[in-house]
């Protein structure tokens, strides 16, 4: 479904990703882990064409999106939903307008059906009755839930999550993880989650990729990664700043 071939990206003289290769199958749940500033979000944004690589290809259902212009990409992006790190809600709109935005733009459903669908989505993300609130009135966790409702309302095939639990307390993080699982199972979507929250990674990842030093350092099932003896993987999973303290 998604294939990344030899993808490289630099910002100025600073190389972020160096010849990255991987595939994601339909219905799979992939988690990308790695240190802050290691290029996880940059890689995620390449999958939906928000960034263009310096080299390499990104194939979505066999179509290389790297050669596409912005208007061609719009067609491909119908397959995607994306939840942003800071939710990226449109702050001039209400919750209902945010969630129903894509359907309003498509103009294929009457207003009352859009309203009904918005209510259903808000129910699904445990935020019923918040339609008229503005994003500024919501907590961090609520904003992420609204962001998720907005991303899944048109039933995309792939949902991308950029650090969905960053900045949230453990209880809210757990509820967001449960929500992501619920969305994955109920809508049967392919999920790609970027995180450095190890609890989320273990819970959500059928497969985990670890980015380190511009490359994919490790790849495997959650079980394999969490039982890895590789010192770099262990250091990251155990959250140890001094490599000498790593117990392999």
């Amino acid at each position: 479904m998604i294939e990344v071939r030899d993808l490289s990206k630099s910002f100025g003289d600073h190389c972020i990703l160096d010849h990255i290769n991987f595939q994601i199958k339909k219905g799979e749940s992939l988690v990308i882990i790695g240190r802050s500033g290691g290029g996880k979000s940059v890689l995620l944004k390449h999958l939906i064409g928000l960034l263009q690589p310096d080299e390499g290809e990104v194939l979505i259902d066999g179509e290389n999106i790297v050669d596409m212009d912005e208007r061609q990409l719009l067609r491909v992006r119908h397959k995607f939903g994306m939840v942003f790190q800071q939710a990226a809600l449109f702050d001039s709109m209400t919750v209902a307008e945010n969630v129903g935005f894509a359907l309003q733009r498509e103009r294929q459903l009457p207003e009352d059906q859009i309203g009904q669908k918005v209510a259903e989505m808000l129910e699904m993300v445990d935020l019923p009755g918040t339609e008229e609130k503005k994003p500024a009135e919501l907590s961090g966790g609520m904003r992420k839930r609204v962001g998720l409702a907005r991303a899944i309302i048109y039933e995309p095939e792939i949902v991308l999550y950029d650090e969905p639990t960053t900045g949230l307390d453990p209880i809210v993080s757990d509820s967001i993880d449960k929500l992501i699982e619920r969305v994955r199972d109920r809508l049967d979507v392919t999920s790609v989650v970027v995180t450095h929250d190890m609890r989320s990674a273990r819970r959500l990842g059928q497969r985990i990729l670890m980015l380190h030093d511009r490359k994919i350092h490790a790849s495997g099932t959650a079980e394999e990664i969490f039982n890895s003896k590789d010192p770099i993987v262990r250091q990251f999973i155990d959250g140890v700043s001094d490599p000498k303290e790593v117990h392999v």
């Binding site: 944004k45 939906i48 064409g49 928000l50 912005e70 990409l73 719009l74 067609r75 992006r77 119908h78 995607f80 939903g81 994306m82 942003f84 990226a88 809600l89 449109f90 935005f101 894509a102 733009r105 907005r150 991303a151 991308l160």
Partner: peptide, 8 residues
């Protein structure tokens, strides 16, 4: 970016 991901 959110607009672009919503195919707008």
């Amino acid at each position: 970016d959110a607009l672009r991901t919503l195919a707008t």
